Simulated assay, not measured.
Amino acid sequence: MATEVYLVRHGETMFNQLNKVQGWCDSPLTVKGIDDLKRTATALAQVHFDNMYSSDLKRAIDTVHLMKDANQVSTIGKIRKLPEFREVFFGSFEGDDIDQTWDQIAQTAGIGHETNVQKIINRVGLREFRAATKKADPRHLAEDMPELDKRMVKAIATLQEITKNEKRVLLVSHGDFIKTLAIKYWNQSDGQHDIIFPDNGSVTRGILHSNGKFEIVDYNQKAIDL
């Protein structure tokens, strides 16, 4: 049995608003973030879900409970938290200024000063961007592509195991992780180049097939489009 997966990006957080690097570190949802999520929750209120899941980070947990409370046609019990669906880990850069971080990574990648992450990735490719992030990290803890790819495969395998009797589920995750999933599993991505970063509160829809294959079929859908 195939399982339809609604991947929701958490709402805007304080670190999003303050332009800080936010991977495994956490910060609370903003008022704007909550308001945006309420629009997504309203748009999904009449969609039946067999279950709801989230990353184990608080901004995702708060988001999934907002989705759960607004849904009028689903009976959801305790929310299971899945650490495999955490955001990408940025190591020592967690909580730092985003522009300064990207500039440091750009220099490590050998392209000079650049604070626009999209331009950096367009120049060197996503794999080299991740490698440069790990290299620039003084403790070399940031996830590179091999580590991230391994975690994505584990995440999909875990999801397949726990949803084998479920037709439709909602799962709250994070922008960079959802984007990286889409690069790997969306047929409109060539797997080499960057794609648009998903909006806070957006919905990306995937299909998890019984043979373990996962594919993204809709990406970064806003509440108005649902």
Rank of each mutant, 00 (worst) to 15 (best):
11 G>V: 06
190 D>W: 10
187 N>F: 00
164 K>R: 13
141 L>N: 10
122 N>T: 09
42 T>M: 12
15 F>W: 15
142 A>F: 01
54 S>W: 02
222 K>T: 14
193 H>F: 03
81 K>G: 00
53 Y>M: 06
73 V>R: 02
77 G>Y: 04
156 I>N: 07
101 T>R: 02
3 T>H: 07
10 H>G: 08
163 T>A: 13
12 E>S: 14
80 R>N: 04
84 E>M: 04
51 N>W: 08
213 K>E: 15
212 G>W: 01
95 G>C: 04
3 T>E: 06
124 V>F: 00
205 R>K: 15
215 E>K: 06
176 D>L: 09
74 S>C: 07
172 V>D: 03
42 T>F: 14
92 S>H: 10
72 Q>K: 15
95 G>N: 06
151 R>T: 09
22 Q>V: 13
79 I>L: 07
61 I>T: 12
172 V>I: 08
125 G>T: 05
9 R>F: 14
122 N>F: 03
20 K>S: 10
106 A>T: 09
90 F>T: 04
123 R>Q: 11
118 Q>R: 08
60 A>K: 04
158 T>Y: 01
24 W>L: 05
5 V>I: 15
196 I>T: 10
141 L>A: 11
53 Y>D: 09
56 D>F: 02
185 Y>W: 08
40 T>W: 09
102 W>R: 07
150 K>P: 00
146 P>Q: 03
185 Y>R: 06
31 V>N: 10
173 S>G: 13
138 P>R: 13
143 E>N: 13
101 T>K: 02
166 E>Y: 05
123 R>V: 00
23 G>Q: 12
128 E>K: 11
69 D>W: 00
52 M>W: 05
137 D>V: 06
182 A>D: 13
165 N>A: 12
70 A>K: 04
76 I>Y: 03
37 L>H: 14
224 I>L: 11
142 A>V: 01
153 V>N: 09
102 W>Y: 14
156 I>G: 08
38 K>P: 02
152 M>I: 11
52 M>C: 02
215 E>L: 01
161 E>D: 13
178 I>F: 02
120 I>V: 15
76 I>C: 02
116 N>A: 04
65 H>L: 05
29 L>M: 14
176 D>G: 10
211 N>P: 13
183 I>M: 14
195 I>F: 00
134 K>P: 04
97 D>N: 09
102 W>V: 15
9 R>M: 13
80 R>C: 00
145 M>W: 07
48 H>C: 09
159 L>E: 11
136 A>Y: 02
1 M>A: 05
176 D>Q: 06
74 S>Y: 07
171 L>C: 09
137 D>P: 13
29 L>E: 15
27 S>P: 11
150 K>W: 02
76 I>F: 05
155 A>M: 06
169 V>W: 05
116 N>T: 01
138 P>S: 11
80 R>V: 04
24 W>F: 10
43 A>C: 05
176 D>W: 05
164 K>W: 05
184 K>L: 00
219 Y>G: 04
45 A>C: 12
140 H>D: 12
159 L>S: 10
117 V>K: 03
44 L>K: 11
114 E>A: 05
73 V>N: 03
157 A>F: 00
27 S>N: 10
206 G>P: 08
39 R>I: 05
191 G>N: 09
216 I>W: 06
111 I>V: 13
13 T>R: 15
142 A>K: 01
